[in-house]
Design a binder for these strands. Structure first.
Lengths: 140, 140
DNA sequence: ACCTTATTGCAAATGAATTGCAATAAGGAG
DNA sequence: CTCCTTATTGCAATTCATTTGCAATAAGGT
């Protein structure tokens, strides 16, 4: 997902490419392979615009989420983590509990067996999540 | 998981079996096959003791969680859902978005392939989560 | 250069979850 | 059964992430 791709999607949705939004996009791209807390993202953005506001971060994440461009999960019980979605790939990751780095998982758990089992019980699947937790190489 | 099992574990951990805790345990057992929000659990408990307090619910859930007896996840973005853990089985469920009912998933996504792939990248697995969302038979 | 309106910043509000503290009661000891 | 220790409870106050109202700002099309 390049910066230009993002800008195109935003404009297509009637959004504007403001100075703050540019910085936020750049920081999300820069940290595409890890989860960022809101505070981390704010701090990263403030390196480029010290006046950027926390509310603006929240609103941009919400805006991008509305465009289905954001992957959100919990880093721990108290902290939410965000990153850009990789449109090319399915979204399952191994999450390093120490540094937040994400390693994509090739294998999607939605097997035919599982889908059949759901159908058998009359359960209509609308989505799923899967995450593996642990410690990455450089942290252990 | 029977009431007696729970009481035994609690006593072994130095906990006391108070009137409020009894009611909470009973309600958790009664709704063992669905997620309950804190408010739902409070309401259910208040049918038996109208004076029972929200803080007590939170503290008991925390206490039981410390004994690894509670499965916690999000019902939606704003609401946490709790249920007793089934010690016998692995904990993966299909969650009905409408009524919160849980259907256990036999198949655990931690395949040998996945474990090998993690090892290959030097990632040490400490845990994982998987949930399937959708609508159950009676809700659709 | 001029509008329209999306976006921002700030302060205030919301709401789930937590905490301090005094009062209560479980349950073991005598 | 009575006493004592301390786990637990209730209440009010607090915390903290997230959201919201509103006036000011600025994108970007005309």
């Amino acid at each position: 997902m390049t910066y230009e791709d993002l800008v195109e999607k935003i404009k297509k949705a009637g959004g504007r490419v403001t100075g703050q939004r540019k910085i936020i996009l750049q920081q999300l791209i820069k940290h595409q392979n890890k989860l960022q807390s809101v505070d981390e993202l704010l701090y990263a953005c403030q390196q480029y615009n010290s006046a950027i506001n926390l509310t603006t971060i929240y609103r941009n994440l919400e805006f991008l989420d509305g465009l289905q461009l954001i992957y959100k999960t919990n880093i721990d019980r108290a902290t939410s983590g965000y990153k850009l979605i990789n449109l090319e790939t399915h979204h399952h990751y191994m999450i390093c509990s120490s540094c937040g780095k994400l390693l994509p998982i090739e294998h999607c758990p939605m097997s035919d067996d599982l889908i059949k089992a759901a159908e058998k019980e009359g359960f209509t699947i609308s989505g799923h999540s899967m995450e593996v937790y642990g410690t990455c190489q450089s942290c252990s």
